[in-house]
Amino acid sequence: MSDKKNKILVVEDEPSLIFTLQDTLESEGFEVIVSEEGEGAVDLVKEHRPDLMILDIMLPGKSGYDICKEIRELKFTFPIIMLTAKDQETDKVKGLELGADDYLTKPFGVKELLARIKARLRRSGTYSNTDVVDILKLGEVKIDLSENEAYHPGDKVVELTAREVELIRYLLSNANSPVSRDELLEKVWRYEYSTNTRTVDVHISKLRAKIEVHPDDPRYLITLHGVGYMLKTS
């Protein structure tokens, strides 16, 4: 087992919470980097390459939503746990759609946060470290998972989001077998607390449009009604 410490980037502007998080996480053996405003958060991600981020939504300079979106566009796939004072389903769905993995509503218990951090770190390595396939061919479409791009006939190139690549990788690890929406929420979104399987349906629909020549009559990313989805490779 490696002695390397997991790095956690905390993006939060409330001094008392910063102190509590830093003290707690360091006592648990994590290396902690702190940003008290939104503008410098992405630069810290590039510099330190954290294993996980704790990200407040309401920040000076740039919102947590904007930071999350930018990080995923840069193809960083580490888990992001968002903190919010709002307890509304729409806020949670928005964060998940932008690439967040989990949510905690303030005030929250430190033990709950630690449990979620450890769960996210465990899950973040469950399949991504063992999947070595970077080039996937689905009929006439070639998908480069390392470059987040799909190449269609006629030299058409379609860019994939980090979440879409994660989704493909997980479906590929279960190729030709059905995968339920709940399983995708837990394993790809790493969000076992959500019952909003509509999130999965929306992402599958967008992904299908990018990797199928005829999305309305898909040959590879198949819906199994009442069951879930399947990626056919044979």
Score class of each variant (00 low, 15 high):
I117C: 00
E159K: 15
I143Q: 00
V165Y: 04
S128I: 06
A162D: 05
L136Y: 03
I168K: 11
A115E: 13
E89N: 15
D182W: 15
E140K: 07
E166V: 04
E166W: 03
L138I: 12
D144F: 05
E70Y: 12
K118Y: 00
L74E: 15
G125W: 14
L145H: 07
L171W: 05
D134F: 03
C68E: 10
P153A: 01
L98D: 02
S177R: 09
L98S: 00
A100P: 00
K118E: 02
L136R: 12
K118A: 05
T161P: 07
A85P: 07
F76D: 00
Y170N: 07
D155T: 06
I71A: 02
R123V: 10
E70L: 10
N176E: 04
K75S: 07
E73I: 10
L138M: 08
E166H: 09
Y170K: 09
I80C: 05
V132G: 12
L138Y: 09
K69M: 04
L172K: 02
T77G: 13
Y170A: 07
L171M: 03
E70T: 08
V110S: 13
E97Y: 11
K118F: 00
K106T: 02
L114D: 05
Q88W: 12
K75F: 07
D182R: 14
I67W: 06
L113P: 05
E147Q: 10
E73D: 13
K106D: 01
P79D: 03
T161V: 05
D182A: 15
E164I: 01
E89L: 11
L136D: 08
G99P: 06
K86Y: 14
D102R: 09
R169L: 13
L145V: 13
V179H: 08
C68G: 11
E140L: 02
E164K: 02
K69S: 08
E164H: 01
F76W: 13
R123H: 03
R181L: 10
T130N: 14
E164G: 01
K94W: 04
N129E: 10
K106H: 05
L96H: 00
R181N: 15
I135C: 08
E149V: 10
P107F: 00
T126D: 13
E73Q: 15
I117K: 05
Y65R: 02
L74W: 13
P153G: 02
I135K: 14
D131Y: 09
V133A: 09
E70F: 10
I67C: 06
K118H: 04
I117N: 04
K118N: 07
V141P: 08
L121Q: 03
L98H: 02
D131P: 01
V93W: 03
K69G: 03
V165A: 01
S177H: 10
K75N: 13
D101T: 12
P107R: 02
K106I: 04
T77D: 14
Y170G: 11
K94D: 11
V133Q: 13
I135A: 05
H152D: 06
K75P: 04
R181A: 12
Y65T: 02
T77V: 15
D155K: 07
F76L: 09
V157L: 06
T84P: 01
N148W: 11
E149T: 08
P79M: 08
A85H: 09
D87E: 08
E166L: 08
Y65G: 03
L172A: 01
P79L: 04
P79A: 02
D101F: 14
T126W: 10
V133P: 11
I80V: 10
L171I: 03
S180P: 08
A162R: 04
Y151V: 04
L83N: 01
K156E: 12
D91E: 11
